[in-house]
């Protein structure tokens, strides 16, 4: 399992910054998503997917680029 810390370390390596500097970004992202969830807003997580509040829990819809193409998509 890749925890948030692992993702941040890899992200920092890709960008070329210190991983500790990205912790505030991750915290801000979590709080923004949480606030949007409280308000009942959809949150588009870039090209990762979209979180939609449905009932008491949010539902995740993956972005098309996340999943591999299905057999019928090429046609």
């Amino acid at each position: 399992m890749a925890a948030l810390k692992d993702i941040l370390y890899r992200t920092a390596a890709n960008i070329g910054v210190d991983a500790d500097a990205l912790q505030s970004y991750a915290d801000a992202l979590s709080s923004i998503v949480e606030e949007a969830h409280r308000r009942g807003e959809d949150v588009e997580l870039m090209t990762f997917g979209t979180l939609r509040p449905e009932g008491s829990e949010p539902r995740f819809t993956p972005h098309a680029s996340l999943l591999p193409p299905r057999d019928g998509d090429e046609a």
Partner: peptide, 17 residues
């Protein structure tokens, strides 16, 4: 912020894959 978000979710995607 844009660079962080793109990189963050790209890494997440690659880990999932």
């Amino acid at each position: 912020a844009q660079v962080f978000l793109h990189a963050f979710f790209d890494v997440s995607k690659s880990m999932l894959r």
